[in-house]
Design a protein around this nucleic acid. Structure first.
Lengths: 233, 233
DNA sequence: ACAACCCTCGCACACTGTACGAGTGGATTT
DNA sequence: AAATCCACTCGTACAGTGTGCGAGGGTTGT
């Protein structure tokens, strides 16, 4: 009756760390390095093994599937996020800082955008962030389940804003691209929607990175404003 | 000097549609059906070919990579979204309806959550939605680049909220899961963060689907409130 | 000395996307 | 009517993937 169990690396005891050779630490380090160099598609067990001067299947002693490895890597990413205590800087500033930090980390490790929000976040670092997030909204004045809701709304905004940004960077990075030519092509695709042409041209002569940062802050402010409004009514 | 070009199915002329056998239409239909049954990992060119009583490599006449096929599928998903005209129902209602529709469509085709926001959306249906979105925020009173920003903020929220929801459903669907046991395990993982235990228990005895819907509406209202505030100051 | 372990890894299997080139049948041209 | 062309199909092959299995080696405990 009870089918396959829900499982996560974090829900079972790790191996005793007596090994002189490999270790989860090292494996994850190497994996992150490989990912930064070659992206998610470039991470294969064989390549990772080679980088560690080990056979591919040796890794399966430390990790039971590739997915488990990804869970470990995933938590490593959460560990890179920085966030001030809400007690020190106020909830709005704490929330903004966390949001910006999440965005920066995802941009630094583009492959992480494919992981974030897609697997259960039960690692210690992820929990740390979740706990901080919770405290941010408690200190803001939310109560009960609304703390959850507010936290979800904020992280949703961050994910949703950053995932496409990363995707865009990746596409543009892979294809050496000529901005003007590209814009001309898009303009052609968009020709049936007069209002949208104008929209394409609007962004034509500005620094795209600056625009995206402004866009991020614009939305972030809006989200926080919207949440704040919940508190006063 | 000019490296690999940016390319998209939508930026080149399709084949003349003289074929009696296969067609892009049929291929995409079959692909969507296959995806709905087996998920993104279950879509392989060989299986898709088999379903169409064709060889796997025959598909490559209509599509130059699997990625191109995904672009076509992707646009099909956009085509399922429904949204009223802002002139008919007001911008807030139009925005809410679009948001809810996007969420529903993603839940209906869980694999689409892995596509949305990850590839350039230049297909006709995607453009249709983008144009509608633009008109929604114009009718709200935004001007210039702020129309972009507001639209991005809203879609970001939708993506970010729905992607994890779909991921969660998938994980829970694959593993026949016992809610209580699972909660006990999570509680153990979370034991170092006292406040979070309470949080896990809070959702214990409610219908998870109803909770997620409430959470979605909570955040949606907040985002729209936050955007609305931009208009009055 | 023997046994029990932690750990490594070569091989094999089933599967993937897709390049290539040969083949087929109907329409078009000569 | 014959020849040519072309839209289209597909078998084969290649390089790659995750990972189950079982045989070994090295260290430790008795």
């Amino acid at each position: 009756m009870t089918g396959k169990q829900f499982s996560s690396v974090w829900l079972r005891e790790p191996r005793k760390a007596t090994s002189p050779g490999l270790s989860r630490e090292e494996i994850v380090n190497a994996a992150v390095a490989l990912l930064d160099e070659e992206g998610l598609a470039g991470l294969s067990m064989r390549k990772l093994g080679a980088r560690l001067q080990a056979g591919a299947t040796s890794l399966y002693w430390y990790v039971s599937h590739k997915d488990e490895l990804l869970e470990l890597i995933y938590d490593r990413v959460w560990g890179e996020m920085s966030m001030p205590e809400p007690e020190d800087v106020g909830w709005r500033e704490a929330a903004s800082a966390l949001a910006r930090s999440m965005r920066i980390v995802m941009l630094r490790h583009p492959w992480s955008a494919d992981l974030l929000g897609r697997m259960p976040a039960l690692g210690p670092n992820a929990l740390q962030v979740a706990d901080r997030l919770r405290r941010i909204f408690i200190s803001a004045g939310f109560e009960g389940i609304d703390v959850e809701y507010a936290g979800s709304a904020l992280t949703a905004y961050i994910y949703g804003m950053t995932i496409p940004e990363v995707a865009w960077n990746t596409v543009m990075g892979e294809h050496q691209y000529n901005a003007d030519e590209m814009r001309a092509q898009v303009a052609r695709a968009v020709k049936d929607f007069p209002g949208m042409l104008e929209r394409v041209n609007l962004q034509a002569y500005d620094d795209p990175q600056a625009i995206r940062e402004t866009a991020f802050d614009f939305g972030l402010t809006s989200v926080l404003d919207g949440l704040e409004r919940r508190l006063t009514t």
